[in-house]
């Protein structure tokens, strides 16, 4: 994203990449977990205990953390048609408004999910097999949401202060592809 040349934007990108790598590693871990459980079930009639619950909860944590990246980079799935059709000044207003709405929604989720973490903690929700408590996973998701709220507000500030644009969703990382030419 060529629009992050401000020092704040630069520092933020590095922090977020670090978080994303942790979340990405979690995704890798879940992949291995599900394959291992399938092998265990098919080959030895013993699936890994709690592979079902633990993999879905871990993936939830990874997704929660990934929200921080979207809030900052602006790579949410959105309709850019009108934004590309209007002038820069108008687009800046549009971006700011969109990110105010995003921040408000993220804030609401932070508030309500904090309650969910608490009720899971006192209610004793646990996994089916090993009875691992749910709340540490929910807490990790909540921390990811808080990070997302923070990064969304930083992006909002960058829009307001420096007029930076939002990234577009396409799911392909240019830099990564550069050194992959055969």
């Amino acid at each position: 994203m060529q629009n992050d040349r401000t020092p704040a934007g630069h520092a933020m990108r590095r922090v977020i990449l670090f978080l994303e790598r942790i979340a990405g590693a979690l995704l890798g871990l879940v992949t291995i977990l599900i394959v291992a459980s399938a092998i265990g079930r098919y080959g030895f009639a013993r699936p890994l205990p709690d592979a079902f619950d633990v993999s879905r909860l871990l993936l939830g944590v990874a997704i929660g953390w990934g929200l921080a990246s979207l809030g900052f980079h602006g790579t949410h799935i959105k309709v850019d048609l009108l934004a590309h059709g209007v002038g820069l000044r108008m687009r800046r207003w549009m971006n700011a408004f969109a990110w105010v709405v995003l921040a408000a929604f993220t804030g609401l989720m932070c508030w309500k999910i904090w309650g969910r973490v608490n009720s899971a903690m006192s209610g004793g929700d646990a996994t089916m097999d090993l009875r691992l408590p749910h709340w540490p996973f929910f807490l990790a998701i909540w921390i990811g949401l808080m990070a997302a709220l923070f990064t969304t507000l930083v992006r909002l500030w960058l829009i307001a202060r420096h007029g930076t644009d939002l990234g577009e969703f396409d799911g392909i990382d240019e830099e990564l592809l550069e050194d992959q030419k055969l």
Binding site: E20, R21, A23, A25, L27, I63, L70, T75, D173
Partner: peptide
């Protein structure tokens, strides 16, 4: 590999939203 995981995560999160 790690970069690919990050990239897949970004796309997936956008879908989950």
């Amino acid at each position: 590999l790690l970069d690919s995981l990050v990239e897949a995560l970004r796309t997936s999160v956008a879908i989950y939203v």
